[in-house]
Each structure stands twice: as structure tokens, then as C-alpha cells.
Amino acid sequence: MIERPHHVPERLGLLSGAAADPFLTEDLLRGVQGHGGVDLAKVVEPLPEDDARWAVEPLRDLVDDAMFQFKENRTDADGWLAPRLHATLRLTRREAADKRIWNHIALAVAPDYVAWRHLPTASEGKVPRINPVRFMGAPDRQCFSRLWWAAEMFRNGADYTPVVRACSNQDLIHNSLRVSLVDHRPTAQALVRILERGTATTGREINGLITAINTAGATVIYDAFAEDEPRDPWALRQWITDAESAPPVPRHVLPTGPDEEPVREDSVAKLTEYFADLFETAPVRGRTP
């Protein structure tokens, strides 16, 4: 079993893929034994000292709470952790695009969480292993970056409620991030609304809908009839500055995100109807027309 590392760093740092690779051992992937953490600390590049966001403790507390609260249903931890991870780290997208910070969290800060959430699996006759992409991999697969991006793409300005809804469907967060559909904020909000209304709910239905939206999107530019507000760089910068004095994120109610303009309601409503129509005729595996 992978336990909390003996040596947990005090500050977040940057861990490059090449430097991290020797620590992605067979024992770790099989969930047998982790590393002490001391040797790993030597290959980490530090982040600036004066930034409160890089303190590890609030993050480590969060994953401990998640593991305690969701031990009966680990998948449900996603919807709880995603907004709280996002509101604790307070990253810009530029910072979040750097995989090294996610490598560091997964390998140095909370390898036990990665192993807890993504259990070793195997095809017939093979030794069960944790998929290595959960430690170091594409942003939509890595254990922590997938949660951060889900929160970033599905939040509606400062409101994380849609993130919780989106995380309740694993196919939605996985596939929509992969095809960059939700880069358009009104599309992301409309997808959540489709889920809420029960128009499409199962993984297969969501996959069918995403494929249909993507296909239609090759000839229809959704931005043209579902407009979004322009982004305001200052709201995010202020939120990041406030990290200095921010208390730990609330455990029972949702935290508050950066004070950005919410998506326009008329855009979301229009797209929701549009997607619902698309879904009527979308090919869905297992659905008889």
C-alpha cells in the first residue's frame, strides 16, 4: 500500500518529467511501496519563496480530508476536491499548463492519494498497475491536473456549483477536456445544464452528445450565436494576491472563485436548446433510434 511519504516537502516545486521518471518505480505503480521523498526532493526546482500559494500544508490537508470523507466511494471525491484544489492553488492557466507542478504534487506531496483514487488495474493475466499517466501525463488524465482543469473549465465565474455537477459524470470531464469543446465557456455551462435536466445522463449518452457537438462544430461556430463576456485579467490577479491572507477553503460549503463575469444566461439557454436538439438525432451506443 502506498502511504503518505515520510518526507513531505513544505513548498511546492517544479519536477520535470525526466527528473521524475526514476521515481515512477514498478513498486509504486503496483501499489506496493512508495519512496521516502528525500531523494526526490533533490531533483525539484524551487518556486519563488515569497508566494503563499506554494505552501504544501493546505493542499496536503485537503487530500487527507478527501480520503477520509470518501473512503466508501472514491469517485465522488472528484467533485469535492476539484473546486477546493482550484481555490487553494489559485493558479493562472499559464502556471497550470506547466506539467512540472502537477508531477511534483503527484509524486512528492500526495502519491498516496493518486494510488487511493486510481487503484491498480490490469487486463486478464497481467499484474495490476496504476496507470502511470495518473502521476505524470496528459493534463486531462493526471490525477490532480484533471481536477484543476475540470474546475477551471466548468466554473461559472466565481461559482463552482457547475463543477460539482460536471464531476458527477466521469465521461463528461474526461472527453470534453480532451476535445477542447469546453474552451468556449457557454458550451461548458450548456453541457452541465443538459446533465442537470436529465436530457443526457449516462456515460454513453454524454459521449454521443460530445461527438455530435464536435461534428456539428466543424461547420457551425458556436461563438457566433452564444457570445461570451471578454476576460478580465484583474479579477484573477486580485484573487491570486488575496491568497496571502486567505483562510483554508471551507469543507462543507463551496469555496468562491475569482470574481469574473458569469457566462451570459441567454447564451447558455440558447446553446442548451441547440444541444438538446442535436442529442435527439445523435448516434448513441446502445440506443435504438
Binding site: 499548463a97 482543469w149 477551471e152 477542447s180 469546453v182 474552451d183 461563438d223 471578454p230 476576460r231
Partner: peptide
């Protein structure tokens, strides 16, 4: 008829129109 300029970034999932 309208003309839109769209900026996209695969690293940061950003889309600005």
C-alpha cells in the same frame, strides 16, 4: 454575415473570440 477572429491555445484550453 459577420467576421470573427478566434484565438485558441491548446496548452491552456483558452478560446477568445
Amino acid at each position: 454575415l459577420r467576421v470573427l477572429a478566434v484565438l485558441t491555445d491548446g496548452d491552456t484550453n483558452l478560446r477568445t473570440t
